[in-house]
Simulated assay, not measured.
Amino acid sequence: APRLRRILAGVDPHILHVRHHSLLRISSTLLWRNKLPLVVSVSTPPAPGPLPLPERHTRAVFAVNDPLAEELVSRHGVPRSLLTIIRDATFVDENLPAEEEKGNPVVGFMGRLERDRGIQRIPGVARRVLERFPQAEFMVVGEGKEDVKLRRWIRIAGLSSKVHVAPPAIDYRKILSGFRLLFSPARKEGLGIFSLEAMAVGKPVVAAAVEGVFANIKDGMTGLLAEPENEEDMAAKILELLERPGMARALGENARELVKAEFNLEAFSKEMDQAYKLALAPV
Score class of each variant (00 low, 15 high):
74 S>P: 04
204 P>L: 09
34 N>M: 15
90 T>G: 03
58 T>L: 06
49 G>E: 00
197 E>W: 08
219 D>H: 09
140 V>Q: 01
157 A>D: 12
59 R>Y: 01
167 P>V: 04
72 L>R: 05
158 G>E: 07
84 T>N: 07
188 K>P: 04
30 L>W: 01
79 P>W: 09
186 A>G: 01
60 A>R: 09
200 A>W: 08
144 G>P: 03
64 V>D: 01
147 D>W: 14
27 S>M: 02
274 Q>P: 00
46 P>L: 02
175 I>N: 03
155 R>W: 04
280 L>H: 05
188 K>G: 15
6 R>S: 12
181 L>P: 09
244 R>Y: 00
176 L>F: 07
41 S>H: 12
91 F>I: 06
116 D>Y: 11
193 I>N: 15
4 L>W: 11
36 L>I: 13
67 P>S: 06
198 A>G: 05
130 L>P: 01
127 R>N: 11
214 F>Q: 15
121 R>D: 08
68 L>M: 10
101 E>F: 09
30 L>Q: 06
251 L>S: 08
150 L>V: 10
48 P>L: 00
190 G>M: 01
46 P>M: 10
259 V>A: 09
34 N>F: 13
90 T>C: 11
163 V>N: 13
176 L>Y: 08
175 I>D: 04
54 P>L: 07
208 A>W: 11
276 Y>D: 00
87 R>T: 14
8 L>V: 07
33 R>E: 15
283 V>E: 15
265 L>F: 12
203 K>E: 02
57 H>N: 04
73 V>D: 01
10 G>N: 06
194 F>M: 13
167 P>I: 13
89 A>H: 14
149 K>Q: 14
91 F>V: 13
49 G>Q: 12
72 L>F: 01
177 S>W: 07
232 E>L: 06
112 R>D: 04
261 A>C: 03
61 V>N: 04
22 S>I: 07
241 L>H: 03
186 A>E: 02
179 F>P: 02
57 H>M: 06
113 L>A: 02
282 P>A: 07
211 E>P: 03
172 Y>I: 07
66 D>G: 00
100 E>M: 13
123 P>W: 00
250 A>V: 09
149 K>P: 00
209 A>H: 13
10 G>A: 10
55 E>Q: 08
264 N>L: 00
30 L>A: 06
219 D>Q: 04
